[in-house]
């Protein structure tokens, strides 16, 4: 399968190899939550809601009272993929992604400022078209910011792959299921620190480096966009309050 047209260099959906899908972010989509956001990367659409910081509900869960407890629950809507299969709740993949999101967000949240408290992040995939993990992290960042939870830096994530001997940014579902490597990177944007790195294939070292570099570039671009969204949102709030 030619994922990159050898004659024109365009991908099947019309992007160039180093181009991301259309991004869209919106905060405050769930009014009941303390913070919430919708994040789209092309057809992948994710919603995140944050509750907290609030008092710990189950004390036995807290190991370290000096820091806030971060919990995360990831779910995929049954209608989110082409085949509407009923998936059992808490399957291995969901548990794993929940953990990944939690750890990534924890790296940025200033948990020591909120002792004896807990923060709950709920992430739901409304529509899946590749790169759900990254979209979840980006949505969670927006939602946390919306909730006003103190963070060191903006965490963003993006994936990149390697097909037809070309590094490709932000794989969609078709590209993702082509069997090539898929590198998901999460960074603290300003500090330029990697907080997440996942890959489920073997890749020669130098190829890996270029693919990872591309994914990192993608993360930075997303960070710029998220900053714009937040800025815009703040401006609106300003206007509303006059």
């Amino acid at each position: 399968m030619e994922h990159v047209n050898p004659l024109t260099g365009f991908r099947v959906d019309g992007r160039r190899p180093n181009e991301m899908r259309q991004l869209r972010g919106e905060v405050g989509v769930v009014s009941r939550a303390d913070g919430s956001a919708l994040f789209e990367m092309g057809n992948t659409r994710v919603i995140a809601a944050v509750y907290g910081p609030r008092e710990i509900q189950n004390r036995s869960q807290q190991v370290n009272l000096k820091e806030a407890l971060v919990r995360c629950e990831y779910r995929m809507a049954e209608f989110s993929t082409g085949d509407r299969r009923r998936k059992p709740k808490g399957d291995r993949r969901s548990t794993e992604i929940s953990l990944v999101i939690r750890q990534t967000m924890e790296a940025s949240i200033l948990t020591h400022l909120m002792p004896h408290s807990q923060i709950d992040i709920f992430v739901q995939v409304l529509q899946a078209d590749g790169g759900t993990r990254s979209a979840c992290i980006n949505a969670a960042t927006l939602a946390l910011a919306d909730a006003g939870i103190p963070m060191k830096d903006i965490v963003t994530s993006c994936s990149a792959g390697y097909l037809c001997s070309t590094p490709l940014l932000d794989l969609n579902y078709i590209e993702d299921s082509a069997g090539g490597p898929d590198v998901t990177v999460g960074i603290l944007a300003k500090m330029d620190k990697v907080t997440l790195l996942q890959m489920d294939a073997k890749l020669p070292m130098d190829t890996f480096e270029t693919v990872m570099e591309l994914a990192t570039e993608g993360c930075k671009a997303i960070a710029t966009y998220i900053r714009e969204v937040l800025l815009e949102n703040t401006k609106q709030l300003e206007c509303q309050r006059g």
């Binding site: 991301m20 259309q22 082409g82 671009a221």
Partner: peptide
């Protein structure tokens, strides 16, 4: 790099399963 502002998004509809492609 990416996301040139001039992008306009359209979707193609598939048949059997509703495949949505950008």
């Amino acid at each position: 790099m990416l996301q040139s502002k001039s992008f306009v998004k359209k979707t193609k509809q598939g048949r059997v399963v509703k495949v949505v492609r950008e």
